[in-house]
């Protein structure tokens, strides 16, 4: 972020930033968060066959619920986390119950529309969400912020790290916790998928009618799948909020969902382990374009932003055209179509 463009010689590209721990920790945190988001999508898209384009909404509901519960309702942060997860699950079921009856393309459009409704609500319900100013601390008590407890815990972790690392980065504890969660989620989901429960999910993905004809109550499984991705979305939302020190509506644009889809497709559908690898690769490249000192002109800040968008676009197009199973997906379990 803090690169001074004047210090760069014209047409010289320096990779200095890539040697800094701050860069890697930043990439690590965001990749970990996207691993969680994309794991949720993997459950939905890769293993249940429901195209959820509303992951950003689950993040938003989770993050806002957490922030509002701690700051407005003054509930302890650690209690607010599970409560916010429950709220997000309830929201997911509320959306899923009518929308899961729709055909796949309508479901996709309905979920993205729903996500936009959530974002617009967050933008405009200023009393509750703080609107575009975002929410971070109580209005009447600027010391009451949603991240207070986390900061304490984070400092405690860093204090105990002193033996290994004399001057740890501020974000390092977040990195640890994000990845611990992401890895735990990966293992848990792998376990769930290899059970009879996961078998029904895959059957729903393959052919819902066939599953119903064999006595499976498919709607329940689809709702459970959605509840899982809502949970992961909410957790991703918490970390997003802790990474930024405020929750803004702009954090939850449809772009976030599409980034998560890029991660998902890069790693490969119907494969949990690929998600983390996809997330790290994707965010290494995207953040790399921000940190590498590209000469200005022609690389102005908006052009670098455009470059990131172009990379994402080309990645999606290229993968869909040449390697739709992603890096680790099995060709036999191609969910995208033969």
């Amino acid at each position: 972020m803090s690169v001074d463009p004047t210090s760069v010689a014209p047409l010289a590209v320096t990779f200095e930033a890539l040697t800094e721990p701050a860069f890697w920790i930043g990439v690590g945190v965001i990749a970990g968060i996207y691993t969680l988001l994309a794991l949720g999508l993997q459950v939905n898209v890769g293993f249940t066959g429901i195209v959820n384009f509303g992951q950003a909404a689950f993040m938003a509901v989770g993050a806002y619920a957490m922030a509002i519960l701690t700051v407005k309702a003054e509930i302890n942060f650690w209690l607010a986390l599970p409560l916010a997860v429950l709220i997000t699950i309830a929201f997911g079921l509320l959306v899923g119950l009518p929308a899961l009856r729709l055909r796949a393309d309508y479901f996709a459009i309905a979920t993205i529309a729903m996500a936009e409704v959530v974002r617009i609500f967050a933008q405009n319900a200023r009393g509750l969400t703080g609107g575009n100013q975002g929410i971070s601390c109580a209005e009447d008590d600027p010391t009451l912020c949603y991240f207070n407890e986390w900061r304490e815990a984070s400092d405690w972790i860093n204090d105990n790290l002193v033996f290994f690392w004399s001057d740890p980065e501020d974000l390092f504890p977040l990195l640890l916790v994000v990845w611990a969660t992401a890895i735990a989620a990966t293992f848990a989901l792998t376990y769930f998928t290899n059970t009879p429960w996961g078998r029904v999910l895959r059957a729903v993905r393959e052919d819902e009618d066939a599953a119903m004809a064999l006595g499976k109550r498919t709607l329940r499984f689809k709702l459970q799948s959605l509840a899982l991705s809502a949970t992961l979305g909410a957790i991703g939302g918490f970390f997003f909020a802790l990474n930024l020190a405020a929750v803004y509506p702009i954090n939850f644009e449809p772009l976030v969902t599409f980034f998560a889809f890029s991660v998902l497709i890069l790693g490969g559908l119907a494969n949990y382990k690929g998600v983390a690898v996809g997330a790290i690769l994707f965010w290494f490249v995207l953040e790399g374009t921000r940190f590498i000192d590209l000469p200005d002109p022609p690389f102005t800040e908006t052009r670098i932003a455009a470059l990131r968008l172009a990379i994402t676009g080309l990645l999606l197009i290229g993968l869909m055209a040449f390697r739709p199973q992603g890096l680790f997906g099995k060709k036999e379990e191609m969910v995208l179509g033969e």
Partner: peptide, 27 residues
């Protein structure tokens, strides 16, 4: 309606009734 992207054995096992493992909590 064979479940194409599932192994034959999974096709079979799916159909069995009374599977406690189909309830998420039981897992």
């Amino acid at each position: 309606k064979s479940l194409a992207a599932m192994p034959v054995i999974d096709n079979m096992m799916l159909a069995a009734p009374d599977q406690p493992g189909e309830r998420f909590m039981n897992l």
